[in-house]
Protein backbone atom coordinates (compact mmCIF):
# COMPACT_ATOMS: atom_id res chain seq x y z
CA UNK A 1 0.00 0.00 0.00
CA UNK A 2 1.35 3.37 -0.86
CA UNK A 3 1.77 6.24 1.49
CA UNK A 4 2.41 8.62 -1.35
CA UNK A 5 -0.12 11.17 -2.44
CA UNK A 6 1.45 11.90 -5.74
CA UNK A 7 4.81 11.02 -7.19
CA UNK A 8 6.81 11.99 -10.20
CA UNK A 9 5.66 8.91 -12.05
CA UNK A 10 2.08 10.00 -11.40
CA UNK A 11 2.69 13.32 -13.03
CA UNK A 12 4.19 11.64 -16.06
CA UNK A 13 1.22 9.33 -16.36
CA UNK A 14 -1.19 12.21 -16.01
CA UNK A 15 0.68 14.28 -18.55
CA UNK A 16 0.84 11.49 -21.09
CA UNK A 17 -2.82 10.59 -20.70
CA UNK A 18 -3.77 14.24 -20.85
CA UNK A 19 -1.92 14.65 -24.11
CA UNK A 20 -3.47 11.53 -25.55
CA UNK A 21 -6.90 12.64 -24.43
CA UNK A 22 -6.53 16.14 -25.82
CA UNK A 23 -5.11 14.79 -29.04
CA UNK A 24 -7.98 12.41 -29.51
CA UNK A 25 -10.44 15.13 -28.60
CA UNK A 26 -9.00 17.65 -31.04
CA UNK A 27 -8.62 15.22 -33.91
CA UNK A 28 -12.21 15.14 -35.18
CA UNK A 29 -12.37 18.88 -34.87
CA UNK A 30 -9.46 19.55 -37.19
CA UNK A 31 -9.88 16.85 -39.77
CA UNK A 32 -11.43 17.86 -43.08
CA UNK A 33 -15.10 17.10 -43.00
CA UNK A 34 -15.66 15.67 -46.46
CA UNK A 35 -18.49 16.72 -48.67
CA UNK A 36 -21.39 14.55 -47.78
CA UNK A 37 -22.17 14.08 -44.10
CA UNK A 38 -24.16 10.98 -43.39
CA UNK A 39 -25.52 9.77 -40.06
CA UNK A 40 -25.26 5.99 -39.89
CA UNK A 41 -27.57 4.30 -37.41
CA UNK A 42 -26.81 0.74 -36.36
CA UNK A 43 -28.71 -1.55 -34.05
CA UNK A 44 -26.83 -4.61 -32.88
CA UNK A 45 -24.21 -3.93 -35.52
CA UNK A 46 -26.65 -3.91 -38.44
CA UNK A 47 -27.13 -0.64 -40.25
CA UNK A 48 -30.80 0.20 -40.07
CA UNK A 49 -30.79 3.76 -41.27
CA UNK A 50 -28.61 6.17 -43.16
CA UNK A 51 -29.57 9.80 -42.94
CA UNK A 52 -28.20 12.33 -45.37
CA UNK A 53 -27.22 15.29 -43.21
CA UNK A 54 -26.22 17.34 -46.21
CA UNK A 55 -29.84 17.84 -47.20
CA UNK A 56 -31.22 17.80 -43.67
CA UNK A 57 -32.35 21.32 -42.94
CA UNK A 58 -35.90 21.27 -41.61
CA UNK A 59 -36.47 19.34 -38.40
CA UNK A 60 -37.35 15.71 -39.00
CA UNK A 61 -37.78 12.83 -36.56
CA UNK A 62 -37.22 9.14 -37.15
CA UNK A 63 -38.48 6.41 -34.82
CA UNK A 64 -36.64 3.12 -34.78
CA UNK A 65 -38.20 -0.25 -34.11
CA UNK A 66 -36.60 -0.40 -30.69
CA UNK A 67 -38.19 2.84 -29.63
CA UNK A 68 -35.21 5.11 -30.10
CA UNK A 69 -36.22 8.43 -31.63
CA UNK A 70 -33.73 10.43 -33.67
CA UNK A 71 -34.02 13.95 -34.90
CA UNK A 72 -32.18 15.69 -37.74
CA UNK A 73 -32.09 19.41 -38.14
CA UNK A 74 -29.77 21.87 -39.79
CA UNK A 75 -27.21 19.28 -40.85
CA UNK A 76 -27.03 17.74 -37.39
CA UNK A 77 -28.47 14.62 -35.77
CA UNK A 78 -29.32 13.81 -32.16
CA UNK A 79 -31.06 11.14 -30.11
CA UNK A 80 -34.31 12.65 -28.95
CA UNK A 81 -35.48 9.86 -26.69
CA UNK A 82 -34.85 6.20 -25.92
CA UNK A 83 -36.21 3.42 -23.68
CA UNK A 84 -33.18 3.07 -21.49
CA UNK A 85 -32.52 3.84 -17.82
CA UNK A 86 -29.47 6.07 -18.11
CA UNK A 87 -30.23 8.17 -21.19
CA UNK A 88 -26.55 8.51 -21.97
CA UNK A 89 -27.46 8.61 -25.64
CA UNK A 90 -29.84 11.50 -25.18
CA UNK A 91 -27.38 13.39 -23.02
CA UNK A 92 -24.71 13.05 -25.68
CA UNK A 93 -26.47 15.83 -27.47
CA UNK A 94 -26.18 17.05 -31.00
CA UNK A 95 -23.78 15.41 -33.45
CA UNK A 96 -22.44 17.41 -36.35
CA UNK A 97 -18.88 16.36 -37.11
CA UNK A 98 -17.42 13.31 -38.74
CA UNK A 99 -16.56 10.77 -36.06
CA UNK A 100 -19.02 11.97 -33.46
CA UNK A 101 -21.05 9.20 -31.84
CA UNK A 102 -24.15 8.78 -29.73
CA UNK A 103 -24.64 5.29 -28.32
CA UNK A 104 -27.45 3.63 -26.37
CA UNK A 105 -26.02 0.40 -25.03
CA UNK A 106 -29.20 -1.12 -23.58
CA UNK A 107 -30.97 -0.84 -26.95
CA UNK A 108 -27.81 -1.61 -28.90
CA UNK A 109 -28.21 1.56 -30.94
CA UNK A 110 -25.31 3.62 -32.23
CA UNK A 111 -25.48 6.79 -34.30
CA UNK A 112 -22.24 7.74 -36.04
CA UNK A 113 -21.55 10.70 -38.28
CA UNK A 114 -19.59 9.67 -41.33
CA UNK A 115 -18.18 11.63 -44.21
CA UNK A 116 -18.60 10.04 -47.57
CA UNK A 117 -15.15 10.03 -49.10
CA UNK A 118 -16.78 9.04 -52.33
CA UNK A 119 -17.91 12.62 -52.64
CA UNK A 120 -14.44 14.07 -52.48
CA UNK A 121 -13.78 14.98 -56.06
CA UNK A 122 -10.57 16.46 -57.31
CA UNK A 123 -12.50 18.36 -59.93
CA UNK A 124 -15.68 18.36 -61.94
CA UNK A 125 -16.14 18.70 -65.66
CA UNK A 126 -19.11 20.68 -66.93
Amino acid sequence: MTKKWISRADVIVLAVLLLVGLGLWILPRVLPQGDALVAEVTVGGETVLELDLQTATARKTYTLENGVVLVTENHTVAVLSADCPDKVCVNTGVLSRVGEVAACVPTGTVVTVKGESRAILDGITY
Binding site: I120, L121, D122, G123, I124, T125, Y126
Partner: peptide, 23 residues
Amino acid sequence: SVGGSLALVGSPKNGAPFTVGVR
Protein backbone atom coordinates in the same frame (compact mmCIF):
# COMPACT_ATOMS: atom_id res chain seq x y z
CA SER B 1 -10.10 23.64 -64.39
CA VAL B 2 -11.02 26.27 -66.95
CA GLY B 3 -14.76 26.64 -66.85
CA GLY B 4 -15.17 22.88 -66.59
CA SER B 5 -12.45 21.86 -69.05
CA LEU B 6 -9.78 20.04 -67.11
CA ALA B 7 -6.08 19.33 -67.47
CA LEU B 8 -4.73 16.57 -65.23
CA VAL B 9 -1.06 15.94 -64.62
CA GLY B 10 0.62 13.49 -62.26
CA SER B 11 -1.29 12.28 -59.22
CA PRO B 12 -3.13 13.93 -56.34
CA LYS B 13 -1.79 11.39 -53.87
CA ASN B 14 0.65 8.50 -53.93
CA GLY B 15 0.28 7.68 -57.59
CA ALA B 16 -3.48 7.36 -57.34
CA PRO B 17 -5.55 8.68 -60.26
CA PHE B 18 -7.65 11.81 -60.11
CA THR B 19 -11.33 11.47 -59.36
CA VAL B 20 -13.30 13.76 -61.63
CA GLY B 21 -17.02 14.26 -61.37
CA VAL B 22 -19.18 14.53 -64.49
CA ARG B 23 -21.71 17.24 -63.92
